[in-house]
């Protein structure tokens, strides 16, 4: 398999987004989105003295960490599979993958198995589901939307069998570590874990040959193939990364909750929302690691700020919906008629 040079990949990746320049509004969108985010932060800060305290802000990052790490996985899939809603890259099994991994981890921990075994088991379960998705999509040629819908059901079934659909208490060294605070600043470890994970993902996806090739495959598969890339392998790889994120999310989740939870399906829509909302933070209105992270944090900030201002949390869901519609509407501006 030949690798592209950075320049070549950039050229190919840029190709499908050539229309971005056609609309001045679309070009201004990332700036507007950042300004809007900043404005909301400002309103919260002016309304609640509590909001801007580092302890609170880092707590929001920790609270967003599970959603964000899943959304990072979905971002990689969407970058590698293209953004077409029906035929492009999508992984609907991510949330269920988390539930499955958390159940496996919790059951092993409950049975007295050490973290040394339980942690790899959760990650391997995630990778296995990713491999299943990759096989169904790349080898069997199934639509990602349908293939991952199937694997989602599979993962939910495994979770229910393994955990007997109960909340299992987890009191392991991993829980104490991830659920704890760093000794230096007293900030949540999960917040640091998310920032570190995002940094690694950003470096790989946006600044490495791997990432550039992935963008090429998702952006224009025909051109990527012509340039000698094995597009099927890259697509399969993106689902493995996503599966890994499901496993990592499972560990974050037991670290955060101190238990396995039966409600992981709740993450599905917010994960999709964060990934697609994140596109407004990028210059080309494409999914990016940084954009996804900002969007996940934005959703966390809304929930936190609304609670501090004593505004009903029901508004968060409503606003999330309005934003999604706005993003879909504006990003469609860049597509040719």
């Amino acid at each position: 398999m030949a690798d592209l040079t950075a320049e070549g990949a950039d050229h190919i990746a840029a190709k499908p987004t050539r229309h971005a320049g056609q609309s001045g509004f679309a070009a201004l969108l990332p700036l507007a989105a950042l300004l809007a985010f900043g404005l909301i932060l400002l309103v919260f800060a002016l309304s609640s003295a509590q909001f801007l305290r580092p302890g609170n802000l880092f707590q929001v990052i920790a609270q967003s960490s599970i959603l964000a790490v899943l959304a990072l996985g979905l971002t990689v899939v969407v970058i590698g599979g293209g953004e077409n809603t029906l035929s492009g890259g999508i992984d609907l099994s991510l949330a269920a993958n988390l539930g499955m991994g958390a159940a496996i981890y919790a059951v092993l921990a409950q049975a007295g198995q050490p973290d040394l075994l339980a942690i790899p088991a959760a990650i391997l379960a995630g990778l296995a589901l990713g491999a299943f998705n990759a096989f169904a999509i790349v080898v069997l040629g199934m639509l990602p939307l349908l293939a991952t819908l199937g694997s989602m059901t599979l993962a939910v079934g495994i979770e229910q069998v393994v955990s007997r659909n109960t909340t299992i208490l987890v009191a392991t060294p991993l829980r104490r570590f991830l659920g704890g605070h760093d000794p230096l600043f007293g900030l949540p470890i999960l917040a640091w874990a998310l920032l570190l994970t995002s940094l690694i993902f950003a470096l790989i996806v946006h600044y490495s040959r791997f990432g550039l090739n992935l963008q090429a495959v998702g952006g224009n598969p025909a051109a990527a193939r012509a340039a000698g890339l094995n597009t099927r392998a890259w697509t399969a790889g993106s689902y493995l990364v996503s599966g890994f994120c499901g496993g990592l999310g499972a560990l974050f989740s037991v670290g955060f909750l101190g238990a396995s939870s039966t409600g992981s399906a709740e993450y599905l829509l917010p994960v999709i929302a964060a990934t697609f909302l994140g596109t407004v933070f990028s210059r080309r209105l494409s999914p990016t690691i940084g954009g996804t992270l900002l969007a996940a944090l934005f959703l966390g900030v809304l929930a936190n700020g609304f609670q501090l201002l004593n505004i009903s949390s029901y508004w968060v869901a409503g606003i999330q919906g309005v934003l999604m519609l706005a993003v879909v509407a504006t990003t469609s501006l860049r597509r040719p008629l």
Binding site: Q50, R53, G55, N56, Q59, Q63, I66, L67, T167, S253, F256, L257, A259, S261, G263, E266, Y267, A303, N304, Q307, L308, S313, Y314
Partner: peptide, 20 residues
């Protein structure tokens, strides 16, 4: 504060209350 049967939301809202 209604966690809507979402454990992550429930834990988050209790955590935020500590500072609130």
């Amino acid at each position: 504060l209604d966690a809507q049967r979402n454990d992550q939301k429930l834990v988050s809202q209790l955590q935020t209350l500590v500072g609130q």
